[in-house]
């Protein structure tokens, strides 16, 4: 049962991360490889606020989301000067810089030793201590994100974003401000990823930098590619498939040191094959260009 709950928590967290990447990549067409940056910022910021600064969860969560928004704004300022491949390189550089900060700023993040002793959150006196209650909270938040996402996808803003994705010059000539719209999308995406990061921090109670390296960004991107992007169901399907893959390998009974790389080999091949045969992914509306 604990195992099923663990998988459900993971699906909830990665569902949110895939949705976050979907806003930038699937709607904005901005191929960013920095999703894990905001995931990490969320995790460390929540950890720092709740442990070092001693804030309650009710204060630390909103503050973390606000911090994610701020980081997303700075990120937009630094990277929206670029488009296409140059944008991707810039996001990779940001991801590398962020990892360097997580890893080397030992006074705050604990560096390679990690940040321990993060407590489960409590709200109005109720502590989400048991696996069941925490899982319910994560799934509820993921569901809420889905509902908000559904709402977002029908707004004028999402339409403007999709127009920009298809043809930036044409969209600009219609009066859509490219950089302002893209920046708003990146901020929204960062807020969602930071929320997932904060939840992750209280779930595992210990964060270390290896979970927020560029490989994690690639993994989240792979969810979008496999499931498809530009709508709500694609990323969720992708997250479910890529999370089920290692579990399936485990049931076959492979040793862990082979199963880990093998999982990555399978999803690497999936990327190549899907890009060739089905660039929109299994259930997506948008093919990355």
């Amino acid at each position: 049962m604990t195992y099923v709950l663990h998988l459900a928590v993971m699906l909830g967290l990665y569902g949110m991360l895939a949705m976050s990447a979907n806003i930038a990549i699937g709607y904005g067409g901005l191929l960013s490889l920095a999703t894990a940056t905001f995931y990490g910022i969320g995790a460390y910021l929540y950890a720092w606020l709740s442990v070092t600064a001693g804030w309650s969860a009710a204060a630390a969560f909103p503050a973390t989301i606000a911090g994610g928004a701020l980081a997303g704004g700075v990120f937009a300022l630094a990277t929206l000067r670029f488009r296409n491949e140059t944008f991707t390189v810039a996001t990779m550089a940001v991801q590398m810089v962020a990892f360097g900060v997580f890893y080397n700023w030992t006074d705050v993040t604990g560096g390679p030793y990690g940040f321990p002793d993060i407590a489960r959150p409590s709200l109005f006196g109720f502590v989400f201590e048991s696996q069941t209650s925490f899982c319910a909270a994560v799934l509820a938040l993921c569901l809420a994100s889905c509902v908000l996402f559904r709402f977002f996808s029908r707004t004028r803003f999402a339409l403007a974003l999709r127009t920009l994705r298809e043809d930036e010059l044409a969209a600009a000539s219609l009066g859509i401000a490219p950089n302002r719209t893209f920046a708003a999308a990146l901020v929204l995406s960062a807020m969602l990823a930071a929320t997932a990061g904060a939840l992750f921090a209280c779930y595992v109670s210990y964060v270390d930098p290896t979970g927020f390296a560029i490989g994690e960004s690639v993994f989240i991107l792979a969810m979008l590619i496999v499931g498809g992007s530009g709508n709500l169901k694609g990323p969720i399907i992708g997250a479910a498939i890529l999370l089920a893959l290692p579990e399936a390998l485990r049931f076959i009974g492979l040793p862990a040191d082979v199963a880990g790389p093998l999982r990555e080999i399978i999803y690497g091949f999936l990327l190549i094959v899907l890009m060739y045969l089905k660039p929109k992914g299994l259930a997506g509306d948008y093919a990355i260009r």
Binding site: I225, M275, A287, R289
Partner: peptide, 8 residues
């Protein structure tokens, strides 16, 4: 497209 090949 370039992005497609890049992901492959």
């Amino acid at each position: 497209a370039g992005g497609t090949t890049m992901i492959a």
